[in-house]
Amino acid sequence: MTAPLDVPESTTQTLAPVAGPGAVAGRSPWQIAWTRLKRDKVALAGGVVVLLLVLVALCAPLIVRLLGHPPLEFHYEKVDPDLQVPTGRFGGMDGEFLFGAEPVNGRDIFSRIVYGSRISLLIAFLATVLSTVLGTVAGVTAGYFGGWVDTLISRIMDVFLAFPILLFAIALAGVVPDQAFGLQGDTLRILLIVFITGFVNWPYIGRIVRGQALALREREFVDAARSMGASTPRILVTEMLPNLFAPILVYTTLLIPTNILFEAALSFLGVGVRPPTPTWGGMLSDATHWYQIAPHFMLWPGLAIFVTVLAFNLFGDGLRDALDPRSR
């Protein structure tokens, strides 16, 4: 009989996994997206500007109290009585009037720009929320059910996309009186513009969500949930929507600057928020009569719109690249 081999005791022991400094730690998709976003300095700069704009809009009364004058207060002493333009260099810009004064009445442009940011951002955010909710519900419903439901919703989207949105907004905003539905003044005009902007823009995000939903409904995890007896509302809420959150978030950030421009266009045409409430579009409209002799009056509201739209677009582009799983 052959004697058993003597096996060293050290070779029979199970080797435990060693967690050294080179071990790879798992990361969630959101951690990966944040890492990518941090590497995009341009997108981060746009995000910082967006945060600053939101803070300016929220703290407008405090900022104006410290650095400016009430936006509706007249300062005729700042205006030349003969030429009706602000006295001094650069439109009256000094330590008291940071952006100068308006022609004719001498109102503080800085204060009106700050308060105008509240109107623009409020309308843009509320309209974007309305568009996102309507577009997401319509897109998920069309993409998941398919068939005649998809055909009906898609044709409704095509009708809205072919509709002349600006003409519809001008007509509707122009015929609504100053008091309706128990509302009046700025509240009525803001809610009316939010309804118009949000209601006509939902097909854009609806088509994107529909396309993503068409692909998701064929995925294995949806089939698994369906085979386990999950109801349709549960599948839509717990399986579909979490996987649609990234494209919805990206398109939302890109839709906000579009709504800002749309509100500015309505105010510029005189069917937005009524004067004397300061809006960037309304200030641009007033400045068209003075751009030759008081160019600063047009510069500041135009620059405010440009910086705001650019910041949102840069941040939205960076967010899209960060959340794209196919990006590097």
Score class of each variant (00 low, 15 high):
221 F>W: 07
150 D>A: 12
122 L>T: 15
53 L>Q: 01
189 R>I: 02
93 M>N: 00
97 F>H: 08
304 A>D: 01
33 A>V: 09
71 P>C: 08
61 P>Q: 05
90 F>W: 08
136 T>Y: 09
85 V>F: 04
98 L>E: 00
87 T>W: 00
56 V>A: 13
135 G>D: 10
34 W>I: 05
72 L>M: 04
31 Q>P: 01
246 A>D: 13
50 V>K: 06
256 I>Y: 11
301 P>W: 02
89 R>A: 13
61 P>E: 08
235 I>W: 02
196 I>T: 03
228 M>E: 05
68 G>S: 03
1 M>T: 14
215 A>G: 12
65 R>Q: 12
317 D>T: 06
288 T>W: 01
136 T>H: 06
245 F>W: 10
204 Y>V: 15
260 I>L: 05
96 E>F: 13
132 T>Q: 11
288 T>H: 07
152 L>T: 14
199 F>L: 15
281 G>H: 05
184 Q>S: 15
223 D>E: 14
235 I>F: 04
312 F>I: 03
119 I>H: 11
273 V>G: 07
264 A>E: 04
94 D>R: 09
304 A>G: 03
39 R>V: 04
31 Q>K: 12
169 A>S: 12
292 Q>A: 11
174 G>F: 07
90 F>P: 01
54 V>F: 15
321 D>N: 14
297 F>L: 11
158 D>W: 00
252 T>H: 01
64 V>S: 03
163 F>K: 07
78 K>S: 08
56 V>M: 12
29 P>M: 03
141 T>S: 13
70 P>W: 01
56 V>T: 13
59 C>H: 02
253 T>I: 03
156 I>R: 05
243 N>P: 05
253 T>M: 13
44 L>N: 04
225 A>D: 11
75 H>Y: 13
279 T>C: 02
98 L>V: 07
70 P>M: 02
36 R>S: 09
22 G>T: 14
42 V>K: 14
309 V>H: 08
82 D>Q: 11
27 R>S: 14
241 L>F: 05
214 L>I: 09
196 I>E: 03
75 H>C: 07
291 Y>N: 04
264 A>Y: 10
87 T>I: 10
136 T>M: 09
58 L>F: 13
280 W>P: 09
17 P>C: 00
238 T>N: 11
215 A>V: 10
146 G>H: 04
26 G>A: 15
70 P>A: 13
45 A>M: 08
221 F>G: 01
182 G>Q: 07
